[in-house]
Nucleic acid binder design. Structure first.
Length: 265
DNA sequence: TCCCAGGCTTGGT
DNA sequence: ACCAAGCATGGG
């Protein structure tokens, strides 16, 4: 059933860095979800049912249903994959039940995937946490203190010199983020060619920013894992055209399943 | 104009 | 010593 949602799968899929499991017991898990300046707790039961804690119905409709992509019907892509003769893709889909492409904040996604280059998911998560703690605003949800993702304006105001970003763990990407913060806001728009002009944003980061931060499902980001996968499983080339409208979703389940096969946490 | 090789911060193994 | 959701750079 394509209305399913599996928060653990999404949290482990590498598409976002601020969706974390904060508690679990015999029959349920609690996740802390943060997007831009908002946060919510979600409890998901082992049977798949879930409920939002501390979000009123208006926030549900305007923020969290869109964020978790609950208004999108994935049935057509499930049908298409299951009707194909691509066994790897069918296995990937079966393993990824409940996967959705989150509708993240564009600025947050752009910065996150700028930071992600030549790094790994654990370190990216830590670096982003540092950035939010240092420059975001404190917010409280269900007794948990956390922080917003700082806007470009908030960062621009607080960071007046390059060394103000010291200690975040950005490494050589510190220069890229500093330049992004100081860039003209009118140059930071969700268009592939314009994104490529930004210092430190290449084809991979631009594609991820559009997929995860603008829900452009036609994007098909190719990173080192996808390269390995295409070589390993498909003999060097994979044709995404049959799944074009769902390319981003196809990439996500391939990425998630292949890393699982390779034993990456 | 395009292609390609080597370098780059940091932290974990 | 090597690796990790890449990118800018310079030389051929």
């Amino acid at each position: 059933m394509t209305t399913s949602l599996n928060l653990q799968t999404i949290a482990d899929s590498g598409q976002c860095f601020r969706l974390n499991r904060v508690a679990h017991n015999n029959n349920s898990c609690v996740f802390l979800a943060r997007s831009a300046d908002k946060a919510v707790l979600v409890r998901q039961y082992n049977d798949g049912e879930f409920d939002f804690v501390g979000a009123n119905s208006r926030e549900m409709e305007t923020t969290w249903k869109p964020y978790f992509d609950l208004n999108t019907d994935y049935q057509s892509i499930y049908d298409k994959i299951n009707a194909s003769n691509d066994q790897f893709l069918k296995d990937a889909l079966a393993f990824s039940d409940g996967m959705r492409i989150l509708k993240q904040d564009f600025w947050e996604a752009l910065v996150s995937f700028l930071i992600s280059q030549n790094s790994n998911i654990l370190k990216i998560t830590l670096t982003i946490e540092n950035l939010c703690e240092q420059f975001g605003k404190p917010i409280q949800v269900g007794g948990i203190l956390t922080h917003t993702f700082p806007t470009k304006e908030e960062l621009d105001q607080q960071i007046t010199k390059f060394s103000d970003l010291d200690g975040i763990g950005l490494g050589y990407r510190q220069k890229y983020l500093y330049m992004l913060i100081k860039a003209d806001s009118s140059d930071i728009v969700p268009e592939y060619k314009k994104l490529l002009k930004l210092h430190g944003i290449g084809p991979k980061a631009a594609s991820c920013a559009l997929l995860y931060g603008n829900h452009d499902m036609t994007q098909f980001p190719i990173d080192t894992w996808m390269k390995k996968l295409i070589n390993d499983i498909y003999g060097g080339s994979f044709n995404i055209d049959p799944y074009k409208e769902w390319a981003g979703f196809v990439q996500q389940i391939m990425f998630y399943y292949y890393r699982h096969l390779k034993g990456v946490k």
